[in-house]
C-alpha cells in the first residue's frame, strides 16, 4: 500500500487515497487532502460535516452514507454538494480520514 506525505506526516492510503488508519488522521491532514482534491481551504461547514462523520463512524463502526450525513449533521443535501462538488459520497469520508462508505444511498 502506498504511503503519502500529508502536512509533513507520512500516512498509508489505499489506491483511491483513503487513509488506511483513521487514527493517523489529523486536522492538518484533512486540510492537505482537501487541497489535493481541490476543495480547500476547509470552511466551518466542512468541519461540521467532518466532525459528524468521525463521531458517527466511531459510534457506528462504519462511515456514514450521504443520506445519513444530510439527515443528522445539520448540513443538508444541497449544501453537501456545494461543499464537496466532486462527489460528496466519497470525499466527505476521505477528508475525514475514514474508509469509503459501503452504502449506496
Amino acid at each position: 500500500m502506498p504511503a503519502i506525505e500529508y502536512a509533513g506526516t507520512s500516512v498509508e492510503v489505499n489506491d483511491e487515497g483513503f487513509l488506511l488508519q483513521s487514527d493517523s488522521w489529523t486536522r492538518e491532514i484533512a486540510e492537505a487532502i482537501a487541497a489535493e482534491v481541490g476543495i480547500g481551504p476547509l470552511t466551518e461547514k466542512h468541519w461540521q460535516v467532518i466532525e459528524f462523520c468521525r463521531q458517527d463512524a466511531a459510534e457506528q463502526g462504519q462511515p456514514p452514507g450521504l443520506r445519513r450525513i444530510s439527515k443528522l449533521s445539520g448540513i443538508n443535501m444541497k449544501e453537501l454538494y456545494q461543499l464537496f462538488p466532486k462527489g460528496p459520497g466519497k470525499l466527505a469520508a476521505r477528508v475525514s480520514g475514514l474508509p469509503k462508505p459501503q452504502g449506496c444511498i
Binding site: Y81, G89, K90, C104, I105
Partner: peptide, 12 residues
C-alpha cells in the same frame, strides 16, 4: 433512481 444518485455521489 439509485444508479443516478450513486453517480452524483461520486461526482458524475
Amino acid at each position: 433512481l439509485i444508479m443516478a444518485n450513486g453517480a452524483r455521489m461520486t461526482g458524475i
